[in-house]
């Protein structure tokens, strides 16, 4: 742990590179989130029907079908084999996320992401304790539970409560009281569990994580030797356990962040004043010398504070 640990998160990077560069992936993500939502809203708001439907299933320019593969999977488990249009749509989406990283959906597309990011911001401002932190494998249990309930009830079970669909469909087709699900997730993340929903429970994110577990696009801590232990990457990372094996790896360990939990959000790249991280592919074998052995103990306390 160094003196820099106590500086506000990202301050060094801002001073060194300027505010814009120190937020470039955050800004790009917000642009992407707004863009994907706008494409769906062009129709109902302005009558420009390039994209019809919502994230569960859509039709673009009357030719490109897209289907949420997790919803298609639940439907199959529930006993309905979808027609070809939906299967092709699910295949396209599935292959795309399998290549660029399943949880790219979470950080670049999902409309709940700004909600839980906002919740995390408020959580920090209020100085809340991290609260209930479910076990690492809890999300897999939830995923299994959803598929089991789908099979038993013969329905696409998660769509009865999925806050993502509630928010996205609500914005496009009308809410009813569906916003209550969104508020619930927000409050849960602020007061009950830090980074709780997206990072520990949401079965959609878990599914996409598994889908992209062999994805090509990856973040690499390729300049890890330059790390000065400011801990900013841990502070901004929504899944901070993914950083440790890469950044703190020994000589010979891969600097690639290979955990399926990594959302490829790029915030670690933003905030690092030492330019440790960069986007690359999983086959990148640029030599990445490990950091010099530290005389001090591992900054475990710093990590848990920062998260």
């Amino acid at each position: 742990m160094t003196a820099k640990t106590h500086l506000p998160v990202g301050q060094e990077a801002i001073e060194k590179f300027g505010w814009l560069r120190a937020h470039r992936f955050l800004l790009l993500r917000r642009v992407s989130q707004v863009l994907f939502l706008s494409l769906f809203l062009l129709g109902p708001w302005f009558g420009i029907w390039w994209v019809k439907g919502n994230l569960s299933g859509s039709m673009t320019f009357d030719i490109l079908p897209l289907t949420d593969p997790f919803i298609a999977l639940q439907g199959m488990v529930a006993g309905h084999w979808p027609e070809l249009t939906a299967l092709i749509g699910a295949l396209i989406v599935g292959v795309a996320y399998a290549l660029i990283g399943g949880r790219v959906y979470c950080s670049w597309v999902c409309p709940i992401n700004p909600v839980t990011d906002g919740a995390h911001w408020l959580h920090d401002r209020l100085g809340m304790q991290k609260g209930w932190q479910p076990k690492h494998n809890t999300r897999y249990w939830v995923l299994g539970m959803v598929l089991a309930v789908s099979a038993i009830s013969g329905t696409i079970a998660w769509e009865f409560v999925n806050p993502i669909s509630m928010l996205h469909r609500g914005l496009i087709f009308g809410f009813g009281f569906a916003w209550a699900f969104v508020i619930a997730v927000f409050l849960f993340d602020v007061f009950v569990s830090r980074r709780g929903w997206c990072g520990h429970l949401c079965p959609v994110g878990t599914f996409y994580g598994l889908l992209g577990s062999k994805s090509v696009l990856r973040v690499s801590a390729v300049e890890r030797a330059a790390c000065d232990d400011c801990m900013d990457c841990f502070a901004v990372c929504p899944e901070m356990h993914v950083i440790t094996p890469a950044l703190r790896g020994k000589e010979g360990d891969t600097p690639l962040i290979l955990s399926p939990d990594c959302t490829n959000c790029g915030r670690c790249i933003d905030v690092c004043a030492m330019d440790v991280f960069k986007f690359t592919n999983r086959f990148d074998d640029t030599p990445a010398p490990a950091r010099d052995a530290r005389t001090r103990t591992q900054p475990a306390s710093g990590a848990s504070r920062a998260a």
Partner: peptide, 29 residues
């Protein structure tokens, strides 16, 4: 029974209904 295993609630039927007959159910209403 089978409908809720098959419908992904995408609303494409609603969009292609020329008379605005169809709508997607809103929670609570």
């Amino acid at each position: 029974d089978n409908f809720l295993a098959a419908c992904i609630r995408c609303g494409l039927c609603v969009r292609d209904c020329p008379y605005d007959t169809l709508k997607l159910a809103e929670l609570g209403y």
